[in-house]
Amino acid sequence: MTLTRGLPIQNDSDAEVVARVLEGDSRAYAILVSRYRAQYGRYAVRMLGSREDAEEALQDAFVRAYRSLAKCDDPERFGPWFFRILANRCRTAGTRRSRREKTFVSDDIALHGASEEHPAERTAWREELERALQRLDTDQREAFLLKHVEDLGYDEMATLTGVGVSALKMRVKRACERLRLLLHEVQGG
């Protein structure tokens, strides 16, 4: 199925695409998938630590968003609305995973792109970073990613997560401390 061919991805606003979907043009939803897949896929991969888990959560979030599209009060801000659904899915998936034995599997896809002057060292650093990130508590990892990778403000994070600003600041602080500790241990050891 070719989904985006001929669809004016760049020209239609989110609100226009949402309106088309709600009017019955379900194929137009592919525009939104294409538009937000990369940005939020990155968050899911970082949050869950594997491409497979991330794709599953991302797909689930897109399906849920599609089925709830009529509830999107501000279609022009489909992205943030979708992100909230995705964050919930990642949280649920992360909680389930945390109960299983944690076995970190290096994700060569998520870590692709090693290059520069010292590719071996660079790749090793990325693997250690991914490993350290997955060793954070779920709520700390979520707060760190939202703050430092997605560049959200604390108010936006509070809206997204339903957690108070003070608690979020504490989670970010603790995440930073733990990452520093874990990565310094690696570098020092």
Binding site: M1, S26, A30, E55, H112
Partner: peptide, 15 residues
């Protein structure tokens, strides 16, 4: 990050 190139098709099929 790089996702499955067929990801969009999978989502649309899942709908």
């Amino acid at each position: 990050v790089r996702l499955d190139p067929r990801f969009d098709d999978r989502v649309m099929a899942a709908l």
